[in-house]
C-alpha cells in the first residue's frame, strides 16, 4: 500500500516534469511551427540563472521565479530578432539554425563555467509514507506544473493575447485583421516560450544538477512529447506527458530506468506510426 502510494506520486511527478519541460517548446511549435532544437539549452540557461544568483546570495525563490524566466525570455527575444525571424516558413532551416544555436550556447557556457556539474541544494525535506520516504520537492514540481498549465489555459482562453495567439495558430493573416503585426506576435511568443523553458530549467535544476551539456538529456523527450501531442498546445502536451510519463515510470518500476527510457522512445515511434498527427490530431481536437 505504501509502495503503491509512493509509486503513484512518482508517476505523477514524472508526468508533471515532462509537461513542464515541454511546454515552452510546445508554445513555440504550436504557434510558430518552429522546431526549436535549442530548447534544451534554454532549460540549461534557466538552471544557470538559478545557480549563479543563488551562489551570490540571492534568495532561491527570487532566482527561480523571476530571474530565470526573465533572463531566458530576454535571450529568446534577442534570438528571435537575430535569427528565427529570417527563416519563417522554412521549417528545416529553422531546425538547423536552432541546432547550431544549441551547439553555440553549449560551447559558450562551457567556456564560461567549465564542463563540471554543480548542484543547488534541494529545498524542503522529505516525507514518509509508512516505511518509505521521498522528497517533498516532488509535490512542489507537481504543483508548479499545475499552476503553469492553468495560467496558460486562462491566458489562452480569456485574454486578448490569447485570442490573438489562437488566431495566429490557425492562420497568421487573422492576426493582422485583429490589428496586430504577426512579427510582434512571433517575437512575444518566442520570448514566452523561452521564458517557460527558463522556468522549467530553474525548477528542474535542484534535482538534475547544473551542467552546460544538460540540455541534450531533455531535448529528445521534449521533442517527442510535443510532436506526440500534436497541434493543440496545452491538451497535446498534457495528454502526451501522461501517456509517455506513465509508460516510462511503469516500465522503470518493473525493470530499470534504462529500459524505462527505451520504452518511452519505442512508445513514441509506435504512437507516431498509429497517429501521424499526434494525439490531438485524433482526440481532443477542440482542445487548446
Amino acid at each position: 500500500m505504501d509502495l503503491a502510494a509512493i509509486t503513484i506520486i512518482q508517476v505523477i511527478n514524472l508526468i508533471a516534469s515532462l509537461a513542464l519541460l515541454s511546454i515552452g517548446l510546445a508554445v513555440i511549435f504550436g504557434m510558430m511551427r518552429v522546431i526549436n532544437l535549442a530548447h534544451g539549452e534554454f532549460l540549461m540557461l534557466g538552471a544557470y540563472a538559478v545557480l549563479v544568483p543563488t551562489q551570490a546570495g540571492v534568495p532561491l525563490w527570487i532566482s527561480m521565479f523571476i530571474i530565470a524566466p526573465l533572463f531566458v525570455g530576454i535571450v529568446g527575444v534577442i534570438i528571435e530578432r537575430l535569427i528565427i525571424r529570417h527563416l519563417y516558413g522554412r521549417m528545416m532551416d529553422t531546425l538547423l539554425a536552432t541546432w547550431g544555436l544549441s551547439l553555440l550556447i553549449v560551447g559558450a557556457m562551457t567556456m564560461i563555467f567549465g564542463n563540471t556539474m554543480e548542484g543547488i541544494s534541494t529545498p524542503f525535506g522529505s516525507f514518509t509514507i509508512g516505511s518509505l520516504a521521498d522528497s517533498q520537492y516532488k509535490f512542489f514540481t507537481i504543483g508548479i506544473t499545475a499552476v503553469v498549465l492553468l495560467v496558460a489555459y486562462i491566458v489562452l482562453k480569456f485574454t486578448r493575447f490569447g485570442l490573438i495567439a489562437r488566431a495566429t495558430m490557425q492562420n497568421s493573416d487573422q492576426a493582422s485583421v485583429l490589428g496586430v503585426s504577426p512579427p510582434a506576435v512571433y517575437t512575444l511568443t518566442f520570448g514566452i516560450g523561452a521564458a517557460l523553458a527558463g522556468l522549467a530549467g530553474a525548477i528542474l535544476a535542484p534535482i538534475s544538477g547544473v551542467l552546460p551539456t544538460m540540455g541534450a538529456a531533455y531535448i529528445a523527450k521534449a521533442f517527442i512529447t510535443v510532436i506526440g501531442g500534436g497541434e493543440a498546445i496545452l491538451t497535446g502536451t498534457a495528454a502526451a506527458s501522461v501517456f509517455f510519463g506513465a509508460i516510462n515510470q511503469t516500465t522503470t518500476f518493473f525493470t530499470s530506468s534504462v529500459v524505462g527510457e527505451v520504452a518511452l522512445l519505442v512508445a513514441a515511434i509506435i504512437l507516431l506510426r498509429l497517429l501521424p498527427q499526434g494525439i490531438t490530431g485524433r482526440f481532443f481536437r477542440r482542445g487548446l
Binding site: L103, L104, I105, V106, G107, T110
Partner: peptide
C-alpha cells in the same frame, strides 16, 4: 581558449 561546439554552432547558423 575557444570551445569546438561554439565554432561549429556559429558555422551552422
Amino acid at each position: 581558449t575557444i570551445d569546438v561546439n561554439l565554432i561549429l554552432g556559429a558555422i551552422l547558423i
